[in-house]
Amino acid sequence: MQEQRRTFHQELNHIRDDIVRLAALATEFIPRGTEVLLANDLEGAQSLIEDDDLLDTLTIQIEDHCYHVLALQQPMASDLRAIVTAIRLTSEIERSGDLMVNVAKGARRIYGCEFDPKLRGLIERMSEEASRLFRLAIDAYVEHNASLAAALDDMDDQLDQLHADYIQAIFESHHAGTIDLQAAVQLALIGRYYERIGDHAVNIGTRVEYMVTGWLPEHSGAARLRARAEMQEAEQARAAAEAVRAEPPASADRQTG
């Protein structure tokens, strides 16, 4: 039994290391894709798009490994949560990589377009913030740090604000005539990709919280629903009791009649 537990935890460590590696690849994509966009680097864009295949391959490997462990080891409680979290995390990380591929493809679509320093500065800042959030999310996972994981949602507000400023700057640029409509729309989509990466980092944090504490935000929602249902039942029971008390007694009628 001891030997089995040691083997399971070795497998878990292996999966954790693979997820760290997957996250490292995705995190590298963020500044890399940003440089491709700001430097109009077609070669860099192609290279990033091709390297996404590595991310996809590693994602499949990790998921297969997790299913293998689930089938053979049949973990329970916190061990089961760890494996389920790993499966969910690969999806979040892989999707984040895809978003930077979209940035690279967007850069190709607006190749040759010059956009003003304010827009470039905001893109740089969104990139830095998205990268920072992602690294913190992975730190929370490796350290099993539920507090850090919980804080990511609030930290994401900064990226959301930058995104709002960025959209405003796109309007101003287009109004000033420095970018055409097609470029404006493409740049707006690119901003959305960075903002979504921040959301994925928050999702990773949520899953880490679940892994450590067993709690999900949905549990609060479910608890509220249960409380409402219980209140409704209590109301109905009280109303029924009131109705019964309000009925006149049958013997009192016969006496007065």
């Binding site: 290391d17 760290v20 490292a24 995190t27 490796v142």
Partner: peptide
């Protein structure tokens, strides 16, 4: 060794 982020790619 046992590093995160970019250092993990070096280890790999």
């Amino acid at each position: 060794a046992s590093a995160r982020h970019a250092d993990a790619l070096v280890e790999a």
